[in-house]
Amino acid sequence: MTAAYRPGPDAGVTRSDDGRSVYVARLPGGPLVVLEGVAALIWGEATSAPATGWVARVAELFEQPEDAIEDDVKAFVAELGARGLLVAAALEPGPED
């Protein structure tokens, strides 16, 4: 079982001990990006297996309908992708979004 996304090949990732923050660095020159709150949760679900239903899991965490948050979540993931911090994982079934 794989996740929908994984860190980019030139990204380093560290999570805070309390799990509330995710630190992502573009290697080798930076920048260093801090994901907090909603951003950290989206990162967590996007990079956790299974790929199927990951947006629904985010929606469930925030007690929101999936279709109400889907566009924002996609836009955020696209921004991380544009920075080279997140890439779509090579999947068997493919991510649902």
């Binding site: 660095a25 990006v33 909603v38």
Partner: peptide, 28 residues
Amino acid sequence: MAAHEATETRGAGATVPLEVRIGFAHAC
């Protein structure tokens, strides 16, 4: 959604623990 770039010069925004920065120095 809270995503901040964290550099020494920006000052404002997210703070990054020193041990995290140093971990990334090794990764770099």
